[in-house]
Computed example of a mutant assay.
Amino acid sequence: MSLPPESREEAIARLTRSASDLEARTTSEAQSDAAGRAVAGQAYKVVAQLLGGVFLGIAVGFGIDHYAGTAPWGVIGGVLVGFAVSLWMAWQTAQRLMAQAAASGVEPRSIPFDDVDDEER
């Protein structure tokens, strides 16, 4: 069966609607893609803060042990202090991100807990 003939104006209107639908879909996908990259970047920043504090504590503790001759207590103390500082820095970053989200009007959403294992599906 062939389609009924449509006027030129109807065809142009149909194509305009299709083009605007396509533009809206690609714009929303690009925005969600950019938002996902920004969130991943912030997550990597927090992980780097956690690891960096511990490694810096190890380095400082090793230096103290080397020059003061207090092995292994300098490294142990450096790891503990580095871990505490890195936790504090990660907490500060999380607080700043939550304040930015609240200021922009974004409601934090809870991720539902999935208690079903992949094997059971």
Rank of each mutant, 00 (worst) to 15 (best):
M1A: 14
M1I: 08
L3C: 04
P4Y: 09
P4V: 15
P4M: 14
P5C: 01
E6I: 15
S7C: 03
S7R: 09
S7M: 04
R8N: 08
E9D: 10
E10M: 03
A11P: 00
I12V: 15
I12Y: 07
A13W: 01
A13I: 02
A13S: 04
A13G: 00
R14T: 06
L15A: 10
R17E: 11
A19L: 10
D21H: 11
L22A: 14
L22M: 06
A24D: 08
T27Q: 11
S28R: 15
S28E: 11
A30Y: 08
Q31C: 06
S32W: 05
S32H: 13
G36V: 02
R37E: 07
A40W: 02
Q42C: 02
Q42N: 12
Q42A: 12
A43M: 08
A43Y: 06
A43C: 03
Y44I: 10
Y44R: 15
K45M: 10
K45D: 04
V46T: 11
V46A: 13
V47H: 10
V47T: 07
A48L: 09
Q49K: 08
L50G: 04
L50A: 07
F55K: 05
G57W: 02
I58D: 02
V60Q: 01
V60S: 01
G61C: 05
G61M: 06
G63Y: 03
I64G: 00
I64M: 07
I64W: 01
I64K: 00
D65H: 05
D65Q: 05
Y67S: 09
Y67A: 07
A68P: 00
G69P: 04
G69L: 09
A71V: 11
V75H: 06
I76R: 05
I76H: 01
G77E: 00
V79A: 03
L80I: 08
V81W: 01
G82W: 04
G82D: 00
F83L: 15
A84M: 08
A84R: 07
L87K: 10
W88P: 00
M89Q: 13
A94S: 14
A94W: 12
Q95D: 11
R96D: 14
L97W: 08
L97I: 09
M98I: 05
M98L: 10
A99H: 01
Q100R: 12
A101D: 07
A102I: 07
A102Q: 12
S104D: 12
F113E: 15
F113Y: 12
D117T: 12
D118A: 14
D118I: 14
E119Q: 11
E119I: 13
R121E: 13
R121V: 13
R121L: 15
